[in-house]
Amino acid sequence: MDVVIAGYGRAGEMHARLLAARHGLRIVGVTDQTTARRAAAAARFPLAATAARLDELNVRADAVVACTPPAHHEADTRIALTRYRAHVLCEKPAVLDARVGRQLTRAAAEAGLVLQPVHNYLQSPAITELQQVAARSIGRVNRVTITINRTEPATGHAAWQPGWRTDPAVGGGILYDHGPHACYLACHLTDQSAISVRCATTAGEHGADHSAHLDVRLANGSSVAIKLSWHGSTRENSYQLSGEHGTVRLRNGQLELTTPTGTYRARTEDHSIGGHTHDRWIAGVHQTFLEHTTGTHPRNEHWKDAVHVAEILAAARASAATGRRWISLSHAHRTT
């Protein structure tokens, strides 16, 4: 399989490294806006073509991995589908506009191509363990609370814009950075879709949201609270499921189950730590993607999840702009 990497920052470099290590895969093209990053890609993959943009690259590709900033994902995905007729694996948030996401769904289906977002937290063994413990011990989940704290925004590659995550013009802000993970995990852990959202945000550098508090109503009547911040005193990833018979919480590698009979604790994978853990998750994303591309019936259910995430985040932004009122997803619109 011949693969093009669109965007050779930190994420693009990671995807390229892991994919190139797989048997039968070749990196045949790399795009990046900066001369320095194109030079780095050429040094690492001397047989690959390089260009500033995806529509300037002249290669044949079976798959494109979109690792550009969020504001470019929709255009890069469309180019991959229409010009390259290639399967697409796209970093989160895969789309910002749910209507565009559905258009891309139809285009991929007509061409028999796979669309898949990088929802890498679904590959986490700790999330699987959290879900299994909840299913065994607490009954129906009626409340999900997700808290993500960072002491500052993650930095991008120094060759381009290290602070791009705080630039709304390229899709910066904590809602687009940590919001997608929280939203698809909440829906996954409850097996429910969202029907309405309210949200409050606080702005920081360049006007991007640096903190956000979302309340989400789910289709079965359950609720979700999501709290995101780049101003935490420490790094924290916390996921709590509350049910009829107790609660189970995963926080920084500690899994804690509380029921009427007592409290039980166990150590597991720590989401607040990066590095090799996330490499394993991305390798799992790649495996799923490759299995779908080689199947006779490409499955794009994860892309539907990405479109739903876009609906949730659009509603959240609309709510934040109108005094934290509840927004039905049927009335959500894109806020730019």
Rank of each mutant, 00 (worst) to 15 (best):
E152R: 14
Q192I: 02
L122V: 14
R140H: 10
R217G: 13
T190V: 08
E129S: 08
G207Q: 14
V170P: 04
A203P: 00
N142A: 07
Y176E: 05
V216G: 02
H178R: 07
S193C: 13
I146G: 01
A154V: 04
S124L: 15
G163C: 10
S124N: 13
I127N: 01
L214K: 01
C199L: 05
H213V: 15
H210L: 11
Y176L: 14
E129L: 12
Y176M: 11
D191I: 03
T151W: 02
L218N: 02
G179D: 06
R140W: 05
G207Y: 14
Y176G: 04
D177P: 03
V170F: 07
Y121M: 14
P180S: 09
H188N: 05
T155M: 10
S137Y: 05
G221T: 14
L214H: 02
S211K: 08
D177Y: 07
R136P: 00
H157K: 04
Q161V: 11
P153A: 09
G204N: 07
D177N: 10
V197G: 00
T128L: 11
W160Q: 09
V141D: 00
T147M: 08
A219Q: 13
V216L: 13
R198E: 04
C199Y: 01
G207T: 12
Q123R: 15
Y184Q: 00
D209G: 03
V141S: 00
G221P: 14
T147P: 05
N142C: 08
R198F: 03
S222R: 09
S222Q: 10
H213Y: 11
V144C: 02
S193I: 13
Q123T: 12
G179L: 04
P125C: 10
T201M: 11
H213P: 00
G207N: 14
G171H: 01
N142Q: 10
L130V: 09
N220D: 15
C183Y: 00
T145G: 08
S193A: 12
I127Q: 04
G179W: 01
L122N: 13
L122E: 14
T202F: 09
H188G: 02
D191G: 09
A212S: 14
W160Y: 10
T201G: 06
W160D: 15
L122T: 15
A182R: 01
E152Q: 13
S137D: 08
N142L: 06
D177Q: 06
T151R: 13
T155R: 14
D191W: 07
L214S: 00
I148A: 02
I195A: 06
G204A: 10
A212N: 06
L175Q: 03
L189V: 09
D209S: 13
Q192W: 02
G173C: 10
A182N: 04
L185P: 02
G163F: 10
W160I: 06
A154T: 06
A200L: 03
I195G: 05
L189R: 06
C187Q: 11
D209F: 03
I174T: 04
D209E: 14
A126R: 01
I148E: 04
T147Q: 11
A200P: 00
N220F: 12
A200R: 12
C183S: 07
I195Q: 11
T145C: 07
R143K: 11
H188V: 00
L214Y: 01
S193M: 11
D177L: 04
G173F: 04
D177E: 12
Q132T: 12
N142E: 08
C187T: 12
D209R: 04
Q132M: 12
T202I: 11
R140P: 05
P180V: 08
T128G: 11
H178M: 09
H210Y: 15
I148S: 02
